[in-house]
Amino acid sequence: MTNSMKNLPILAGLSFGVAILVIIAAIWTDAFCLSSGTGACRVWRSVQWESIVAGALGLMGGLFVIYGTQRQIQAQREDMVSARMQDVMGLYERIKENIADIQTFIEARTDEQKNDLEVDLKDVKSHWNNLRSSLDHETLHHRVQSDPSYPPKLKRACTEARNSLINISQILMSEEASVWRTTTRIAYILNELSPNLIDAFKTEIDSYRKQLTRT
């Protein structure tokens, strides 16, 4: 919304204030001029101050109508932007949830290692499989990539963020790697690569949202 639109309620309020002041001043002047025959009072009695007040009140009402219309248009535009961003925001939120799940997985394995706890490899493997199955998002990713309206930079950032999860998924599929080696490799991706890729993805999402809002 432009600054002029944001200022409409202020202008409407000023119009209302001016109308009230004119009414008060007019009533007082009318009362004063009833018993006065000065030239100023004769001029005043020829002024149609009621029309001035009516005009100010009409201006106030018009400004409120314009403001309400602009607010409605803005709300419709925001709904359009949200609908337009649904796929890419859905993918972004899922990747963020995956990162949180992976972080929990890493912390559990690290805690086991630090405290020299006995590790149930079968349980760990089951956890790996469950985690890996949640990292794909192929269908949602394909919808984003095949949509011609999404900018190339946004699509590229989306793919790079998703690829960091695919790399983790591939590590989780390794049958030969030890628990600790796997944990270390995943932790590297999680701590060194994923944050930058996720931030870049979010930056492109915000840039595209601003572009849609301006159109």
Rank of each mutant, 00 (worst) to 15 (best):
M1W: 04
T2E: 08
N3T: 08
N3E: 11
S4G: 03
M5P: 00
N7D: 12
L8D: 10
I10L: 15
I10E: 03
S15F: 13
V18L: 10
A19I: 08
L21W: 13
W28K: 13
W28E: 08
D30N: 15
A31F: 11
C33Y: 00
S36W: 01
G39Y: 07
C41H: 00
R42T: 07
W44Y: 01
W44H: 00
R45E: 00
R45V: 05
S46K: 03
S46T: 01
V47P: 00
Q48R: 04
E50G: 14
G55A: 10
A56V: 12
L57Y: 05
G58F: 05
G58E: 01
L59R: 06
G61V: 12
G62H: 01
F64L: 12
F64S: 06
F64G: 02
F64V: 13
G68S: 15
T69W: 15
Q70D: 14
Q70P: 02
Q76Y: 10
D79H: 04
M80L: 04
M80R: 02
V81L: 01
V81Y: 02
M85H: 05
Q86V: 11
Q86W: 08
M89P: 01
E93A: 05
E93D: 03
I95C: 09
K96I: 05
K96A: 09
N98E: 04
D101E: 00
T104I: 11
T104F: 12
A108Y: 10
T110D: 14
E112N: 14
E118S: 13
D120R: 11
D120K: 08
K122I: 14
V124C: 05
N129E: 03
N130L: 04
L131H: 00
S134R: 14
H137C: 07
E138I: 13
T139Q: 12
H141C: 09
H142C: 06
H142Y: 13
H142R: 12
S146D: 14
D147V: 07
S149P: 03
K153S: 14
K153R: 11
K153L: 05
K153D: 08
K153H: 08
K155D: 07
C158Q: 06
E160M: 15
A161G: 01
N163F: 10
S164E: 04
S164M: 03
I166C: 03
M173D: 06
M173Q: 05
M173G: 12
S174I: 03
E175G: 01
W180C: 00
R181C: 07
T183M: 10
T183I: 06
I186S: 01
I189R: 08
L193W: 13
L193F: 14
P195A: 00
N196Y: 15
L197I: 12
A200G: 06
A200F: 12
A200Q: 07
S207W: 08
Q211I: 04
